[in-house]
């Protein structure tokens, strides 16, 4: 049967990529101000920055934004450039590899952030 409509996909990812960009654009200056406000930057003060729960949550959201932004961007690149007669498998494998990699990064980031007391 012919499918006449669009795939009804793409909008959610497109929108989410923009939303994640907005969050990163807001977080980075705020974090920079926090980081520059301290007198001397050493390991202790750097750890101290991440001690409050709000900073842990804000940083984690930043990591989520960064990783999802990057994954959607990679997906765009794969759609653009990974071409062949039977591309579904290579593309799915690529999506999968990077999804696992980025999810691993996310878990790792949670571990790092919540290891700071």
């Amino acid at each position: 049967m012919r499918r006449v409509g669009g795939a009804h996909r793409g909008l959610d990812m497109w929108l989410f990529q923009r939303a994640s960009a907005v969050y990163m654009a807001l977080f980075i200056p705020v974090f920079a101000v926090c980081a520059l406000a301290v007198d001397t930057m050493d390991h202790e003060t750097w750890r101290g920055l991440f001690a409050p729960v709000w900073m842990k949550v804000a940083s984690l959201l930043f990591v989520v934004s960064l990783l999802s932004h990057a994954w959607i961007g990679l997906r765009e690149i794969f759609i653009d450039y990974v071409h062949c007669a039977r591309c579904v498998w290579p593309r799915l494998v690529l999506y999968f590899i990077f999804a696992v990699l980025y999810l691993g990064c996310l878990v790792w980031a949670i571990d790092i952030l919540w290891s700071v007391q």
């Binding site: 669009g6 795939a7 793409g10 909008l11």
Partner: peptide, 14 residues
Amino acid sequence: ERLDYLEDPYRLFR
């Protein structure tokens, strides 16, 4: 219907 047709990773979102 026009928007339905266009909402697609290829047709529009390339």
